[in-house]
């Protein structure tokens, strides 16, 4: 039974990856299409028909829907949704195979965390049109899934006693949520940096930027996404401490993973303060968001695999 479910799960992962590849190509084509000189830029701040309620100011979109562009974009999003459904199915099947939450080793964690990243990416589209970071997000998820299936794959094994806790469900899940928001924030910050360069006249070649929101607008978007990640990360840190007190006999012991979680928390605390500091708004704070997310990736990969510590649950 377990083996059947595991193999179904893997089939779902590979299918999801194949579809993500197509989505990635279409997202990229969309960016390329934005670079072509044709479409006139149309500001559509959507005024909802009922009175003057302006719910949320939609940022720029481009010319009428009959051009090829939005078709690429819509197809890319549709494929991402399909890929995501398969991706979630893969995680659920894996969990069913193991008889527990599917995030007890690096393979499972990557599988689930990337599903959450894509899920958050899709969900925020209801709030803001952030499809332009689709190439970044789906590309990142594809690389992560590739590394996970090729390098991190392990068979289903039972949980060691230290992981048998409700905190496994809470702590790790919230950490993945935080990671997803940080990823999105970093993606927007990258675009923000490009946009700032363009405004300074140094990235004239990147014409697709014309179709994207301006740097300050992006900075606000990145900030709002990142602070959500920060709240989740703060919770992760505290939930981790509560769990560590149960499992390891102390709530904080400067274990390597604890150190890096703390470092990441501090970087993003700095990011939030940067907004209130003269001379630190704009590109500098964007760099902080990117450095912070890089630290998250570093914490998950390098620290897990090469640093000695108590979080040795990679299964590798």
């Amino acid at each position: 039974m377990t083996e059947t479910l595991v193999s179904y799960s893997l089939v779902a992962v590979y299918s999801a990856m194949a579809i993500y590849v197509l989505a990635f190509v279409l997202f990229t084509l969309d960016l390329a299409r934005r670079s072509s000189p044709a479409p006139a830029r149309v500001e559509t701040s959507v005024e909802a028909s009922s009175g003057s309620t302006r719910l949320l100011e939609r940022v720029t979109t481009d010319a009428p829907a009959d051009t090829k562009g939005p078709r690429y974009l819509r197809a890319a999003v549709a494929l991402t949704v399909i890929g995501w459904v398969l991706h979630v199915a893969a995680a659920v099947l894996r969990g069913a195979a193991a008889g527990r939450v599917p995030w007890a080793n690096m393979f499972e964690f990557t599988l689930t965390a990337t599903a959450i990243i894509v899920g958050v990416f899709l969900a925020v589209q209801f709030w803001q049109d952030l499809r332009f970071v689709g190439a970044f997000v789906v590309g990142f998820v594809l690389i992560a899934l590739g590394v996970a299936t090729v390098n991190f794959y392990v068979d289903v094994v039972p949980l060691p006693p230290a992981l048998q806790s409700a905190w496994l469900v809470i702590h790790v899940f919230v950490a993945s949520l935080g990671t997803a928001f940080f990823a999105l924030g970093a993606a927007i910050s990258v675009v923000q940096l490009l946009q700032a360069r363009r405004a300074a006249g140094r990235a004239a070649g990147l014409r697709f930027l014309d179709t994207l929101p301006a740097a300050d607008k992006l900075e606000n978007l990145a900030y709002r996404v990142t602070v959500v990640g920060f709240v989740f990360w703060t919770f992760t840190l505290i939930a981790g401490a509560v769990w560590a007190e149960r499992a390891w006999g102390r709530y904080w012991g400067w274990d390597t993973k604890e150190v890096w979680t703390f470092i990441i928390w501090t970087i993003f605390a700095g990011y939030i303060h940067a907004r209130a500091t003269r001379g630190w708004r704009g590109s500098r704070s964007a760099w902080l968001a990117i450095i912070g997310f890089s630290a998250v990736v570093f914490n998950f990969t390098i620290v897990n695999l090469f640093f000695k510590g108590l979080h040795t649950y990679s299964g590798l």
Binding site: A269, G270, A274, A276
Partner: peptide, 9 residues
């Protein structure tokens, strides 16, 4: 705030 930011980083 600038010092606080510097110390945080």
């Amino acid at each position: 705030m600038r010092t606080a930011l510097f110390l945080l980083l």
